[in-house]
Write a protein that binds this DNA or RNA. Structure first.
Lengths: 236, 236
DNA sequence: GAATTCAAATACAAACATGTATTCGAAACA
DNA sequence: TGTTTCGAATACATGTTTGTATTTGAATTC
């Protein structure tokens, strides 16, 4: 019952069809986890929102938690790829962190980030922009917060979550090393600890951007982030 | 059917009895919200855990959300009081942030915080200690994270939540002013923005201390927090 | 094109949740 | 002490969620 652009019926292979089902279930689940929360979202909710029956769910995922992990895996790859690209190629001006689901479900505000002042190295500027972009996308930030809480409740899930977190920490740590190498500055704390501090700062500022809770507008948030980063990064 | 320490029957007044019921419902709800999450906790859960029937719930609270607000109000007062005491009297060495529920439900680790090095002003040291104490108490931190997420979903709840958040921000801002006055340093950013940055940092580090997610042990976390605070607070 | 396979739908049997309407019994009060 | 009050229990009617067991029909295979 599917049609291509020329309105010819398109027959999907079993594999394609199942992949489609999985993606649609994941998309629906993502939207609902954000809107209602993981705990308040039932399997039934998800399948109905995706346009399937409950049977489809159970023949694709072991459980709601299992689906959540796959959802996060999908997004984790997107985030890591984005960070990695800037790390590898710090002079590229802007990386569209587009994501099909995000674009579909919320109107992702993809305006270029407000210009932070210019006397900062490209890698810093980009990192700040990237961070503030990530966290301005409350859809995904909410999802990861939800995940964090669920991790504190489910040991297996926690293992997975920590692996994701560790990947990000490792990448940010790389940034710190690269920064130190470029500037020749001595690090006042081990790189990993500095990285953790930066992440904490970013995650914290991210929380203040959840819908309805704007204690600082985007510009201020970015300014604060930038200032802190600058101060910490300076040589003692 | 209640007995005092000498095993005499104690008759409670209506008011006392109802207050007791409310507190027990609040305590039970708190434990469940932390353990299962707000969304996954049913009214029935709460009442059974508290040892009452569902009727007791509805004759004491309008809804689960309403109860949550009262729960947070209770804890908010505790936190504010703690912060305020340090602010008013910065030389008092230690403030027991004891809380009946916390003590009952989890074994709150109330060891004195690890000594941060000594060449720091008392108010800074205390703030760091207080912060790291708050956030080491994952019970309450979890509760507030849960609240934050719920606030992003429920507009009325959000209003309440923002008021709480604003109170804290105002208090931390007071700290910043006090610090500036004491040291005579010029603030590089408006006090409120600095305060927001500090809070973000603290909240971020707090997240990394949720059960199972220790990316840094207590000592490291405190060290990072202290270092960042120190760097930011220095005059440009 | 008939037989086979398997993703998804349907059927089913519990269990669990919701909110209100009513009853019960201990306190408040005369 | 008898009556009133009202906080909490119970009953009820209704809806939701669960996971599995079974069926169905389109894609695959021969």
């Amino acid at each position: 019952m599917f049609y291509d652009v020329f309105m010819k019926k398109v027959r999907l292979t079993r594999q394609q069809s199942q992949a489609q089902t999985q993606q649609r279930l994941l998309d629906a689940a993502q939207a609902l986890f954000v809107k209602k929360g993981f705990g308040a979202t039932s399997v039934e909710h998800i399948t109905l929102a995706a346009g399937y029956s409950r049977g489809a769910f159970y023949s694709n995922f072991k459980s709601k938690t299992q689906l959540f992990i796959e959802l996060l895996t999908r997004d984790h790859q997107r985030i890591l790829a984005g960070l990695q690209t800037i790390l590898d190629n710090p002079d590229t001006p802007d990386h569209p962190v587009s994501h099909r689901v995000a674009a579909e479900l919320v109107g992702t505000h993809d305006q270029p980030a407000l210009a932070v002042d210019g006397n900062r190295s490209p890698i810093e500027t980009q990192l700040i922009h990237y961070y503030s972009r990530i966290y301005r996308d409350t859809q995904f930030y909410t999802l990861w917060l939800e995940a964090r809480l669920h991790a504190s409740r489910d040991a297996n899930f926690c293992t997975q979550f920590n692996a994701f977190q560790q990947d990000i920490l490792a990448t940010i740590t790389q940034y710190v090393y690269k920064f130190a190498a470029r500037t020749g500055l001595t690090l006042p704390l081990p790189a990993e600890q500095l990285a953790l501090g930066f992440m904490a700062l970013g995650d914290g500022m991210g929380m203040y951007h959840l819908p309805g809770q704007s204690h600082a507008d985007d510009h201020h948030a970015e300014q604060i982030l930038a200032y802190f980063l600058e101060r910490i990064a300076l040589q003692r």
